[in-house]
């Protein structure tokens, strides 16, 4: 290995142009998830963030000191303004999803999301954190270069050809790295815990009343199955953090990751967390494979509707 080869690999990884379809698809999923997050919070906007909410603004500031990107510190502290801020946050999320003024709206979504999480960090889970981090790097990505209203407008104005133009994926790579790091750090932290090493961790997780969602099959709670489950989680988190970069392992690991998160979605009550994480899987899929999958689905839909 030479320094030159390292620079070449770095350059290839971050700057070799590729189709913007994966990042555009991620933008749509991301936008939908931001809308879903705000909508699920809707009944409690003022409960959590209002002037007379569970956590007052002065308390939040005293517990989380330091200068922070927080629109709540610039708007007047009354419930009308606070509610307006949430409606205003929804608007760019919708526009980002359809890809209209994509760059501007990705900035606005990031600012709003970060402000909301800074205002009350005591109700956020890992999925919210991932949305915030991915939102930061999405600002720099060519997220409106495909599957967007922006692109339709550019084609209509003849500023862009109808064929997709490849783009430098460095911002997309940062979101991918962020996801891989999430898994890798989760693995490292779990590996430090005796219950994970001994294989008893899932026993505790699946006996937390507050997290239970649907009934589990009786055999799942057997000690040996829980032990295998605990160790499998460790292996999978390590693999999704490290081995996912090896092309030959990628799709099989993404499939296992998908099954893992779907199982967690079924068994644990952590709304949206699994979907927040899964949304970024699309960034690991080759654009040609995405196109093939799109064509396959289109053919399936055509066949379905023609049959009717």
């Amino acid at each position: 290995m030479t320094l030159r080869s390292v620079f070449r690999a770095w350059n290839e990884f971050f700057f070799a142009e590729q189709s913007p379809t994966p990042i555009a698809l991620f933008r749509i999923l991301y936008g939908v998830l931001v809308i879903a997050t705000l909508t699920l919070l809707r009944p409690d906007w003022l409960t959590w963030y209002g002037v007379h909410g569970w956590v007052s603004f002065p308390t939040a500031i005293s517990l989380e000191p330091g200068t922070r990107l927080n629109l709540f510190s610039v708007i007047p502290q009354n419930d009308t303004w606070i509610e307006a801020l949430f409606w205003i946050s929804l608007a760019p999320a919708i526009l980002l999803t359809i890809g209209f003024l994509t760059r501007l709206n990705s900035v606005l979504v990031f600012i709003c999301l970060t402000s909301i999480q800074h205002r009350n960090p005591y109700i956020t889970h890992g999925g919210d954190t991932f949305l915030r981090l991915a939102g930061f790097f999405l600002i720099f990505a060519p997220a409106g270069a495909a599957l967007s209203v922006d692109r339709l407008i550019r084609i209509r104005r003849r500023k862009e050809p109808a064929t997709l133009q490849p783009r430098s994926p460095w911002a997309q790579r940062m979101i991918q790295l962020q996801l891989a790091l999430l898994y890798f750090v989760a693995f490292l932290l779990k590996a430090k815990g005796v219950p994970w090493v001994q294989g008893t961790a899932l026993f505790y997780v699946y006996h937390l009343d507050e997290l239970k969602r649907f009934p589990l099959p009786f055999w799942f709670l057997r000690p040996m199955v829980l032990k295998l489950g605990s160790w499998s989680a460790l292996v999978l988190e390590f693999s999704l953090g490290v081995l996912v970069w090896v092309k030959e392992f990628r799709y099989i690991l993404l499939t296992l990751g998908l099954l893992f998160h779907l199982w967690l979605e079924y068994s644990l009550n952590i709304p949206l967390f699994q979907w927040d994480i899964l949304s970024a899987y699309v960034l690991f899929i080759d654009s040609d494979d995405l196109r093939r999958a799109g064509n396959w689905m289109a053919r399936g839909m055509d066949a379905h509707f023609l049959r009717r």
């Binding site: 989380e64 330091g66 200068t67 922070r68 990107l69 990031f110 999301l113 970060t114 999480q117 800074h118 890992g126 954190t129 915030r132 981090l133 930061f136 790091l181 999430l182 750090v185 989760a186 932290l189 779990k190 590996a191 430090k192 815990g193 005796v194 219950p195 994970w196 961790a201 505790y204 997780v205 006996h207 937390l208 009343d209 507050e210």
Partner: peptide, 20 residues
Amino acid sequence: LWSGLFQSWDMFAPIPKAVN
């Protein structure tokens, strides 16, 4: 802290909560 890039990924780690 300003930009919101802080993060921690200690879901159920290193020791899962063992109390309801």
